Simulated scan of single mutants.
Amino acid sequence: MLIGCPKEIKNHEYRVGLTPESAHELVSHGHEVLIETGAGNGIGATDDLYEKAGAQIVKIAKEIFERADMIVKVKEPQAVERAMLREGQILYTYLHLAPDPEQTKDLIKSKAVCIAYETVTGPGGQLPLLKPMSQVAGRMSIQAGATALEKANGGRGVLLGGVPGVLPGKVAIIGGGVVGFNAAQMATGLGADVTILDRSPEVLEKLGMHFEERAKTRFSNKANLAECVAEADLVIGAVLIPGAAAPKLVTRDMLKTMKPGAVLVDVAIDQGGCFETSHATTHADPTYIVDGIVHYCVANMPGAVARTSTYALNNVTLPHALKIADLGWKEALRQDPHLAEGLNVWDGHVTFKAVAEDLGLPYTPVEEALK
């Protein structure tokens, strides 16, 4: 199979779909790999390193889209990239379609085979291709929130860890999954006063056993959520409904109860955000203020730590890429029902139920695509 990896063009996105090591693995399986020149510069991977791995360097993305059987990326294809997709071509990347009707419409029109990292499943309902980026984003959310809390950045001027004689900052983390757990690890490590909210008694029990007295846990109902948000210096939105739009848990009215200069970090922004006042921002202009509350809503947070993120991502995406390349996408999905969960769009049809429901589009079961 001919596999192409274009340079990411989203604002301040420095990750790359394939590392030189991943390109070498694909080549060693007998496949051809095309890399757009400079695609790996953000992680310190030069064109020379890719060539030594057996990949071919091409000058423009257009050539990759014209020639490749499978496109491997990190972020969702931008409009100019979607226009270059063709019928039957495999697109393997993060998509986050539920809050993005324009992208979904373009992918349907392209008739490409679109496999989304974020809906590929694992044993026990895990999301193994989303997990490493959730780990990175969870940890980064505390760094970003701590910076936004600085007075020069519009925040309250609170140091999360406090100092002797001064209370630490209060952090409320909404959602106790991978993002929430990693955010809590960072926040407790700094010495902040941490509360984690979740609706699952089992999750709350695990969090309580892990963090013991270092973090408090509370059941996430409207009253508890409102109280924690009002008291917090920093609120982390870490909720996820796989493949679907995030629920709006923090309303604009709740902002009026918060301390002026408090910070909201919406890690769920890729799925539309879990704060009513959220809209996607970029690393170039990461924050804005609504009703005196600082919002950090960067949609590709892990892109800021591109080297760590790229290698963590390739660790989990490469095995599936090899399977797709070795077997062809249909046979790969037939043999691996977890990978089949990643198929979101095929031949002009939406094949992921939550996306179809959120966008009011017809739903075609994956089984139809695999016939």
Rank of each mutant, 00 (worst) to 15 (best):
M1C: 07
I3A: 11
P6H: 05
E8H: 12
I9N: 14
I9W: 01
H12T: 02
R15S: 12
G17D: 04
L18C: 09
E21M: 13
E25M: 11
L26T: 03
E36F: 04
G40H: 04
I43T: 14
G44R: 11
E51R: 15
A53L: 05
A55C: 02
I60C: 09
A61G: 15
K62I: 01
E63H: 13
E63I: 07
F65P: 10
E66F: 06
V72S: 12
K73R: 15
K75V: 04
M84V: 07
E87M: 06
E87T: 14
G88A: 13
I90C: 12
L91M: 11
L91F: 13
Y92D: 06
Y94G: 06
L95I: 00
L97G: 00
A98Y: 00
A98W: 00
A98P: 00
P99D: 03
P99C: 02
P99N: 02
Q103K: 01
I108S: 00
A112V: 06
E118N: 08
L130P: 05
L130H: 08
A137P: 07
R139Q: 13
I142L: 10
Q143P: 00
A146G: 10
A146N: 08
L149K: 05
L149P: 06
A152D: 02
N153D: 01
G154P: 05
G154M: 04
V158C: 10
L159V: 13
K170Q: 15
G175K: 00
G177V: 07
A184S: 09
A187G: 06
G191P: 02
D193F: 02
I196A: 09
L197N: 10
E202Y: 04
L204G: 07
K206E: 14
G208C: 09
M209Y: 10
H210T: 12
H210R: 11
E213F: 10
R218F: 08
S220F: 08
A223I: 14
A226F: 02
A226H: 07
C228F: 00
V229T: 11
I236V: 15
I236K: 03
G237F: 04
A246E: 03
K248E: 07
K248H: 09
R252A: 09
K256P: 00
A262I: 11
L264Y: 02
V265P: 06
D266G: 04
D270K: 04
G272A: 03
G273K: 02
T277I: 05
H283S: 09
A284W: 01
D285E: 08
V294L: 06
H295L: 01
Y296F: 15
P302S: 09
T308F: 09
L313W: 12
V316M: 14
K323H: 04
A325C: 05
G328V: 03
E331T: 13
E331A: 14
A332F: 14
D336P: 10
A340M: 07
G342R: 08
L343V: 03
D347S: 10
V350F: 00
F352K: 06
A354S: 11
L359V: 04
Y363Q: 01
Y363I: 01
P365F: 07
V366K: 01
L370P: 08
L370A: 10
